[in-house]
Simulated scan of single mutants.
Amino acid sequence: YLNILKNVTYFFAQNRATKLLLEKHGVDQVSISGDTRFDRVAAIAKNKKELPLVKKFKADKKIMVVGSCWSEDIEVLLPFINASDMKFIIAPHEIEGGTISKLEKECMRDTIRYSKLEESTGDEDVLLVDNIGLLSSLYAYGEYAYVGGAFGAGLHNILEAATYGVPIFFGNKNYKKFNEAIELINLGGAVAIGSYTELRDQFTIFMEDTALQIAGQVNMDYVKDNTGATDKIFEYCQKLIKS
């Protein structure tokens, strides 16, 4: 593979670490473009789907959107959900195999499936998303986000939540290979937690409106400040075509 890489005219690296890695292996025609994922999530937020039924479910309550959660995440979240007066939108990573039914049984608050939302009485506290493809738009309806995966194979995409300017929580086991997770923790926009009590205690920091707004703005600015990689790569390709 290294021989193939060395025959490529030019490379764009996501960040300084990947640039140094390429240079270590003798690939020296490299510049840092940034990460195109930032451009993608910024575009998603700009063109988000309007979901009137979700807006109606939200009403005047604050919401935590739980995205791509696994059973390990649910173990931590359930006591928090059951003790909270907030509303929740839960979008499991897997919707087959009885995942939704298990959540309905274990949740002590009134639940409704997204597929049944038109039949809502307006009294439900927890929306269980039993379809796919909506998560990136659902984050727009939350004041907080919890992103799953870090208690298992690896943290899912937190940029989809960050672009909407909400504080983010996730598990503390497997997130350190994701640069954005480290940086957002350091900036104060994200928190890694290991248990229900940690989630409960850390959440209280963001209950006050000023703290909530500051953390949200940090995350939104982080995405905004890192966009532009797609344009850099496209401009270079145009130069190649013209030369």
Rank of each mutant, 00 (worst) to 15 (best):
V66R: 03
G171Q: 06
D35F: 01
S137R: 13
K58F: 02
N219I: 03
I158M: 03
G154Q: 03
L240I: 12
F169N: 05
V66M: 12
Y10E: 06
Y164L: 03
I193L: 05
C237V: 13
E23Q: 15
A42Q: 15
N15Q: 05
R37L: 07
S68D: 05
R113Q: 12
A59C: 05
K62F: 07
N15E: 08
K46M: 14
I44L: 15
T121I: 02
S136P: 09
L184G: 01
I95R: 10
T36N: 11
V126E: 11
P52G: 11
N179K: 15
I132R: 10
T230I: 08
L2W: 08
G98S: 08
S101G: 10
N219E: 08
I241C: 01
F57I: 10
E124F: 04
S120G: 08
K239Y: 04
Y141R: 13
S84E: 11
A150Q: 03
H93K: 12
K177L: 10
L78I: 13
T227G: 09
Y146V: 03
L184A: 07
E94W: 02
Y175A: 04
E235A: 09
F234K: 13
G149V: 00
T210V: 11
S31L: 08
R113E: 06
K19A: 14
C237Y: 13
F12P: 10
N157G: 04
G148K: 06
L21W: 00
F234C: 14
S84A: 13
F203S: 10
C69H: 04
T111F: 02
S68A: 00
I95L: 05
L187D: 07
G194D: 11
V54K: 12
N3W: 11
K177P: 03
I205Y: 12
S195M: 04
K239I: 04
Y146P: 08
N15I: 00
